[in-house]
């Protein structure tokens, strides 16, 4: 009985067919994406690894101190030195490059979609279930097709991270713009703003703290995806954690785990401070 039902509604089969068709027909397209993402990744990697680690640590510390608070600066200094002396500096920078790349792509795609769905009910109705789908579908389910399309390496890692971390920035951009008080929108219109003037001079600035909260969430989700991306050869800290698990090197797993946490706290506090700064005054 169950088998019969399965044969009538064979979603899995359809999914496979679609994947195969995409691979056969859109190969060059996926190749182009792979090349593009790869070059961005390697440029970023080179930038992050170009100066001596101690210089980079000084830069990160200064950034944290300046954007957030002195405490965060001190934490960054100690944490990053720890990473450096544990010997994880290079892999941490790999991970950072992967996170930055994914987040930048997520913002480039996510913010406009968020804006569009805030303006158009139809778009919102279509986008919402897709976002739910992206957030709840187990990562392994799209990890394999990602490898099929983009081969092993960091690029499918970026794509998988992107799928997982895109929703918050879309949702919070949408929410932020919808929450702009009606009177402010009316004021912008009543002074003769065009729709784009209204968006860029009134709506986006007012919505900015909410949008930045979405950016922060996107970064956090991207980091949490890093370990899983390590399974498909994305490299970085995820790879080290994986090694620790598969080879029963408990110490290695713990050390790389700590490195991820330090990186996460650094990124979280700095982006939160950015979100607070984007609000009115202070």
């Amino acid at each position: 009985m169950f088998e019969q039902m399965h044969q009538i509604i064979n979603i899995g089969g359809w999914f496979e067919t679609i994947i195969n068709w995409l691979m056969d027909n859109l190969g060059p397209f996926f190749n182009a994406i792979r090349e593009g993402v790869n070059s961005v990744l390697s440029v970023l990697n080179n930038i992050l690894l170009f100066p001596h680690p101690l210089i980079m640590i000084a830069i990160f510390t200064a950034l944290a101190w300046w954007l957030a608070k002195r405490g965060i600066g001190i934490f960054t200094l100690i944490g990053m030195l720890l990473i450096y002396y544990m010997g994880f500096w290079d892999v941490t920078m790999d991970t950072l490059a992967l996170v930055i790349t994914s987040v930048v792509i997520a913002l480039v795609i996510g913010v406009p979609i968020g804006i569009w769905s805030s303006k158009n009910e139809m778009v919102e109705r279509i986008v919402r279930p897709i976002l739910d789908f992206m957030q709840t579908l187990p990562a392994f389910v799209y990890l394999i097709p990602a490898v099929l399309f983009f081969q092993l390496g960091a690029v499918p890692g970026v794509i998988a991270t992107l799928i997982f971390s895109l929703p918050p920035v879309v949702r919070l951009t949408n929410l932020g713009i919808r929450q702009v008080p009606v009177e402010i929108k009316e004021a912008a219109i009543s002074f003769g703003s065009t729709p784009s003037q209204m968006l860029f001079k009134a709506e986006l600035p007012v919505a900015m703290p909410t949008i930045m909260a979405g950016v922060n969430q996107t970064i956090m989700l991207a980091l949490s995806m890093v370990v899983i991306a390590g399974m498909i050869g994305a490299g970085g800290l995820g790879n080290e954690v994986l090694k620790g698990i598969t080879q029963l090197k408990i110490g290695l797993g713990f050390e790389s785990g700590i490195s991820i946490v330090i990186l996460a706290i650094f990124l979280d506090r700095v982006t939160q401070a950015l979100a607070a700064n984007s609000g009115p005054e202070r």
């Binding site: 008080p181 004021a187 007012v206 609000g279």
Partner: peptide, 9 residues
């Protein structure tokens, strides 16, 4: 406007 509708930023 009644509630001023100023741009906070």
């Amino acid at each position: 406007f009644q509630h001023f509708a100023l741009l906070p930023q």
